[in-house]
Simulated assay, not measured.
Amino acid sequence: MTPPSATGTGSAGRPVPEPRVLCETRTLAEAPPVPSGVLWKLTESERQLDANVVRLAPGGQVSAHTETQLDVLVLVLAGDGVLGKGSGDATEPLTAGTLVWLPHGAARSIAAGEAGLTYLTAHSRRPGMRIGTRPGSAPSGHPGAAPE
C-alpha cells in the first residue's frame, strides 16, 4: 500500500506529496466553545504554506500589529467579529464566509463578537531558524572556531 503522503517519486527521487483532506472545518467551528487558541494547524514537513484554524472566545482579540513580511488570507468559518484596519478607527465586520486579505506592511487587529470567532489563516511558510555565520564574521575551517 502506498503511504498517504506519497504516490511516486519526483525528479530528485523524493516522494511526491498526494492531495488529501486535512480536516473538516465545520466540525472544528461547531465544536463546543473552548478557550481561545489554535484548533488545527498544517504540520506537513515539506509544505510551502502555513495554515491554522483559530478560535477567539467571545470578546477575545488579536491586538493591533503589523506583519512586515507576509501577506495573510483569513477566511471566517463561524461566529462574528470586527477587523481593525490601519492605525485609525476604520473597521470591517467579519461574519461566516468573509474572506480577508491582510497585505504585508498593513496594521490590523481582529476582535471577536458575542458568539466568538473561528477563522482559517493561510500564508507562505516562514523559513525555520538556521545556524549560520554571525554578520560581520567569516566562516572558518571548523565548527566553533572564533573568527580570525
Rank of each mutant, 00 (worst) to 15 (best):
A122L: 15
R108H: 15
L77G: 03
G105Q: 14
A57Q: 14
R14K: 07
T133A: 09
P33I: 12
T118R: 06
Q69F: 12
D80A: 03
G59N: 11
L77A: 00
M129W: 11
L70S: 04
R26C: 02
A107V: 09
G10M: 11
P32M: 04
V53K: 03
P19C: 03
T98M: 03
S87K: 04
H65W: 09
G8Y: 14
A112T: 03
E114H: 07
P135C: 00
R14F: 14
A57I: 09
E92A: 14
P143H: 13
L77Q: 07
G13Q: 11
P19I: 06
R125Y: 04
T25I: 08
G136D: 14
P35S: 13
G88C: 08
V82W: 07
S36F: 11
G8W: 14
G10V: 08
E30H: 02
M129C: 01
H104K: 15
E114L: 03
T68V: 13
D89G: 05
T43D: 15
V74F: 02
A51V: 08
A51C: 13
S11R: 09
K85D: 08
A51T: 04
G10R: 06
L39G: 07
A115F: 00
A64E: 13
G79R: 02
L70N: 08
K85G: 00
G37H: 12
G86K: 09
V54H: 02
E46R: 13
S63T: 12
